[in-house]
Nucleic acid binder design. Structure first.
Length: 310
DNA sequence: TAGAGGAGCATCTTTACTTCA
DNA sequence: AATGAAGTAAAGATGCTCCTC
């Protein structure tokens, strides 16, 4: 299943305002990049519907899988996402029915997770999974979330990238999952988002490098031309001024032509003429022919594009 | 005020599962 | 139909920071 960058709709900034701490991984200056979702003018409540953070391709990919899982579960008479009451009761004190041995013994965090809290109660109440027979020490069954569960989690993720304990509990209860599963899902989801962001950032920086390389090449060429013209004074007189706008890095006056005559000199700069430095191009990020802002960044919020190339 | 411990998160890794050639 | 490679996602392990006591 092909999934190009154009299909992506990844959110660029991760601002977890609901948390005590704020995590921002937006590496791009806000003046260049407009984070997704777009500004209010184009953003409405349906934005995520029309620009799903994770295009349905992944869901489609898993559609058949979900169907198969559900079919198998039905055939087995057991929903893989539901733990029989007895099994759930037996699970108390164990962090996860799927845990490996190492996670069960002597682990401080496991102890922490095992604390008798409201959450733990919820875990016991909503735990699902497998029978003791299946839940052997050598077998860590991985239970795929159903399409519906994933959709709800995605919806929730659109609202907030982190969950407070209450939200986690509510979501777990609603989905019939353990709070730990919800927590893990959000962790993984954040990781995927960040990975996607990194990919896009990388792409963006590559473009910058390309633009700067081109610009450098162009300027070198211009310098060469100017040097050769300088060597032939007759030519020099007939020379048409270069089209490049230049700016004195010292006083930031815009200059045109080979004489670096400043134009648009601000009033406060009127005074004795000063020596202008080497001019520099105004556009450091290359020509506008390479749109990298909204068009590029506003469309990525999906799983990594590691999908198999068909 | 220093330090221990808990909580939450990021990150990396492992592993079960799926798809496809 | 069987199989192995590759991809995906759930879950485990670990380290870090912040906060509270």
């Amino acid at each position: 299943m092909m999934m190009g960058k154009e299909d992506l709709g990844l959110s660029l900034s991760l601002s977890f305002s609901a948390e005590k701490r704020t995590t921002t991984i937006n590496l791009i200056p806000s003046t260049i990049i407009s984070p997704s979702p777009p500004p209010s003018s184009s953003f409405n409540n349906n934005y995520w519907t029309t620009h799903p953070p994770f295009p349905h391709s992944t869901s489609d990919l898993n559609k058949e899988a979900c169907r198969l899982v559900e079919t198998r579960s039905f055939l087995k008479g057991i929903d893989v996402n539901r733990m029989p009451a007895t099994a759930a009761e037996e699970e108390g004190g164990v962090s996860s029915p799927n845990s490996t041995i190492s996670s069960l013994s002597g682990n401080k965090r496991s102890e922490r997770e095992g604390n008798c809290t409201e959450e733990n109660e919820m875990e016991r109440a909503s735990s699902r999974g497998i029978s003791d027979e299946e839940d052997g020490e050598t077998c860590r069954k991985k239970l795929r979330l159903t399409k519906e569960q994933s959709a709800v989690l995605e919806d929730s993720f659109k609202d907030h990238h982190t969950l407070n304990p209450k939200q986690k509990l509510a979501l777990a209860k609603r989905l019939g999952l353990r709070p730990r599963q919800v927590e893990v899902w959000f962790q993984n989801r954040r990781a995927r988002t960040k990975l996607k962001q990194t990919e896009v950032d990388c792409e963006f920086l590559k473009r910058c490098v390309e633009n700067l390389t081109d610009e450098n090449r162009r300027l070198q060429k211009e310098v060469q031309e100017l040097r050769s013209l300088k060597r032939s004074p007759q030519f020099y007189m007939q020379m048409t001024p270069p089209t490049t706008l230049t700016m004195c890095p010292s006083c930031e006056c815009v200059a045109t032509g080979p004489t670096n005559t400043p134009v648009n000199i601000p009033p406060h700069r009127v005074g004795p003429p000063h020596q202008h430095h080497q001019p520099m191009p105004l556009n450091m990020w290359g020509p506008p022919s390479t749109p990298i802002s909204q068009g590029h960044y506003g469309q990525m919020d999906t799983y990594p594009t590691l999908a198999r190339q068909k």
